[in-house]
Design a protein around this nucleic acid. Structure first.
Lengths: 149, 149
DNA sequence: TATTGTTATACTCTATAACTATA
DNA sequence: TATAGTTATAGAGTATAACAATA
């Protein structure tokens, strides 16, 4: 029979209630961050989701929807809608991919590039993480990266 | 005329693209955390939002909807729906508040208390922040707290 | 058979406004 | 006038399944 250890735990260990509170904090920070972005971007006719896709297109160059989806972690049906909206505004184009006739090569248009530059200037004023120093932002990115795994 | 400083900035300063990437990380961590919670809680017939309110009721004791709203940061119309669902399952009750006839005193029922205990046991298995040590969790809470302001 | 993209549906969360009954 | 709560609506997000065209 094992001996009972009656000493209190050295570190109490996180309770479920702690996890729940941290989860709410996560939600609140997320929504606040996005609403700050959206508020500032509104003047450019874009929202966060468009901005993210335009940035990805500039970063990756012409890319299939599949590649954008994997790169941004967006649902494929959501990506269809976002690209519809970007095309309607003339900011991106779906062109045929000569190497795979199922796929589209999504291109950033000149207009899209300009609009992105404008949006970037606006977004610089959003400062959604302005409460944190550069080092703290890196800390946060590391911690969140481990969670998003 | 001011002299041009041609030295590179010591710390490059966060770009808008960095902020955008961090925002996506925040979103992804948030949704992953909630889906882990919901998945594990499903067996108890509760979802995260119910769990949060039940925890708050146990923590605060009988409380007005206004108090729950302020305590959890939920919209008042959302709180109405959550309490409707909890009442329908017999887990909480809206009773008249003798001191303010506009307000309800929301009570946790015995059934609610039991269901909460069951849900807590289930939720302990969710480990939404299991990738982090206790100290990292505290770090994360501090950083997010500054963002949620 | 698997993959790319499309369409449709459902549910959650936020946000807002209009409304009631009280204070 | 302001507050507590209700109802309704709109918009964003996730998630899923079914489908067409192509690999």
């Amino acid at each position: 029979m094992k001996q009972e250890d009656t000493r209190p735990e050295p570190t109490p260990g996180p309770t479920v209630a702690d996890d729940e509170a941290l989860g709410r904090l996560l939600a609140s920070a997320h929504f606040r961050c996005r609403s700050l972005f959206d508020e500032v971007l509104r003047q450019s006719g874009l929202e966060s989701r468009h901005f993210s896709v335009l940035l990805a297109l500039r970063r990756l160059g012409p890319a299939s929807q599949r590649r954008l989806i994997d790169s941004l972690g967006v649902e494929k049906s959501a990506m269809v809608r976002i690209l519809d909206e970007l095309e309607r505004q003339g900011l991106a184009e779906r062109r045929p991919d000569p190497r795979d006739r199922r796929a589209h090569a999504v291109h950033l248009t000149d207009g899209g590039r300009e609009r992105l530059a404008d949006a970037e200037e606006l977004a610089a004023g959003a400062q959604p993480f302005g409460a944190l120093t550069a080092s703290e932002r890196r800390q946060l990115a590391t911690l969140l990266g481990r969670l998003a795994g």
